[in-house]
Design a protein around this nucleic acid. Sequence first.
DNA 1: AATAATTATTTTAGCGCTAACATGGGGCCG
DNA 2: CGGCCCCATGTTAGCGCTAAAATAATTATT
Lengths: 344, 344
Amino acid sequence: MTTRQGQPGSRSKGRVTLNDVARMSGVSAMTVSRALNEPQRVSEQVRERVEQAVAALGYIPNRAARSLAGSRSHTIAVVIPSVSNAVFNNVIRGIYDICAPAGYEMLMGNTYYSVQQESSLISKFLTHHPDGMIVTGLDMADSTRRQLEAAAIPLVQIMEVGTSAPLDMNVGISHSEAGAAMARYMLKRGYRRIGVIGAQMDYRSQRRIQGFIDVLVEAGLADDKRFMTTSEPSTVRLGGQLLADLLVVNPDLDAVFCCNDDLAYGAIYECQRRHIRIPQQLAIAGFNDLEGSACINPSLTSIQTPLYDIGKTAAQMLMRRLAGEVLQPSVVDLGFRLQARDSA
Amino acid sequence: MTTRQGQPGSRSKGRVTLNDVARMSGVSAMTVSRALNEPQRVSEQVRERVEQAVAALGYIPNRAARSLAGSRSHTIAVVIPSVSNAVFNNVIRGIYDICAPAGYEMLMGNTYYSVQQESSLISKFLTHHPDGMIVTGLDMADSTRRQLEAAAIPLVQIMEVGTSAPLDMNVGISHSEAGAAMARYMLKRGYRRIGVIGAQMDYRSQRRIQGFIDVLVEAGLADDKRFMTTSEPSTVRLGGQLLADLLVVNPDLDAVFCCNDDLAYGAIYECQRRHIRIPQQLAIAGFNDLEGSACINPSLTSIQTPLYDIGKTAAQMLMRRLAGEVLQPSVVDLGFRLQARDSA
DNA sequence: AATAATTATTTTAGCGCTAACATGGGGCCG
DNA sequence: CGGCCCCATGTTAGCGCTAAAATAATTATT
């Protein structure tokens, strides 16, 4: 094997450059650049010779030089709470399916549901001078807001709409409306002693729950001791524990809204262990409608959100803006769907 | 709101540069560069004036220029099958916890379990001229192998060890040994009519299953019609369906090894629906030991792998190599643990 | 006090690429 | 056949930063 120890400090890494390709194919560097980036603008024979030289030399373009020389980085920065969350995975696919064919790269990072981490991540991303940015949520630190305004790049805030004016563009759903829809559904089904469990209380979870509770208040059925939340990260185990805690205080509950499906799984498992029949003794509903929610026993009633479309739409808005189009309106509500199943 | 329509083609974006900061703080650009990157090498007063100027001007460094001028990009490329997979999430955290404090950025991308996607992703990543690279698995296309050799950057192949010689460094576990350990465990527990279900048959899943089956063969208990696999992506639903299919052919099975926990969840749900008692009538085991596996009913027997440590160790090896250290040996097997629970 | 050694800062040059403009050689018009 | 436009390609300059060498300012040593 060749040595890979590198040679820190060596200026040139002896890599093949555009000029090497130019020399080999007998044209100027600029023509090679065009042959690679706008193939239709050079003659066919030149294109072929350049392609051969590229292959023969193993030329790998240098993005840093390209970004620096051109004024565009061909990069979109995507800021989400957690890539590992199945919810955001779908959003990312939607973004990717638009950005990749358009020649844009995605720079992706996690905030881990922390405003502070979000700020430092966005600062870091701005050093890449991305051509556009997609950020989760409408809330952010004031300093970050100012940085983004100063950067003056197209920006789409995703996941939620309606809670405040977006900085630029905005695609998502109304989480408070979704929470309210679930509450109305439960009321219609006849449940009256309704509890709520929530974890990882980011703004969107809070709004879901607030929307849910507002409806209960209106119906005169809200009771603070039935609402149990924590800022711990959502896990299946935590769902079971929160339900257990809730039942200690409220043994007579007839329904529980879990602010996401993972918590709902834990709640269902806990009921199974206690031989509580779902939904006869206790109805359970979740939020996000993950893949497993249709399979668990009983199947889980949940709110399905247009995750893929949120990502896709956000990316499309960005692409159009980058193509010079002026977009009106810039707030898009994609709506949600209540998926009724056996658990509630 | 300020206009964000951008001005494609404008050469300079009128952004604040290092020279602006230098002018304002009354020193040369080089001194500002040092004040920011090696603060201990400039006098305290200069450092302070520079910091003030940076804050006042809202200076954001340009990474493209930095990469181009220096010979290092301060970037580590990470190539994994799927960021959304909970398994890789832990690995990523391990990498991040080492790289971030060392001032390295992570460029992350999915291969979606496709060799072709892996090749194009690696090509794309090489255009960023990362200082190091972490790639999942030991298998890759020959052309990719050559590209990586030509790039001559430190490389760590992660997740599995022992199936072939690594290109450079290697950290992981032996999946065939892990599969074998599960088979021996099942045999010891007295199961004799043992089936296997597998999906998303990447190399590592295949090796788990092969290791499992090899032990059955040795025990004279292997039966091809009890092994059911598909290349579809693993889902909970698919786990249920594969188990159902398997039971049609083998109604007398007494145990099933699922090549990952998601499939095992589906299998458990399917048993619940059919009122098959686990493990009395049918034992079920998974692989990966996800968070929910301890909570499901019955709790799932699974193989726990040192995911966080794999990421951390890989990153550490890379960092040491980048610091100029020569590492021996370069293959690290971190081992696994069989987590016995109620399901098998 | 003169010199050497060390530290702090500046100067110079250039990383690899592309925007903008310049050039040259067809073809088409009047 | 000169003037015009159009196309393919070349030339020039510079994006913002840092490596390396040069210089200036300070401290240590004799």
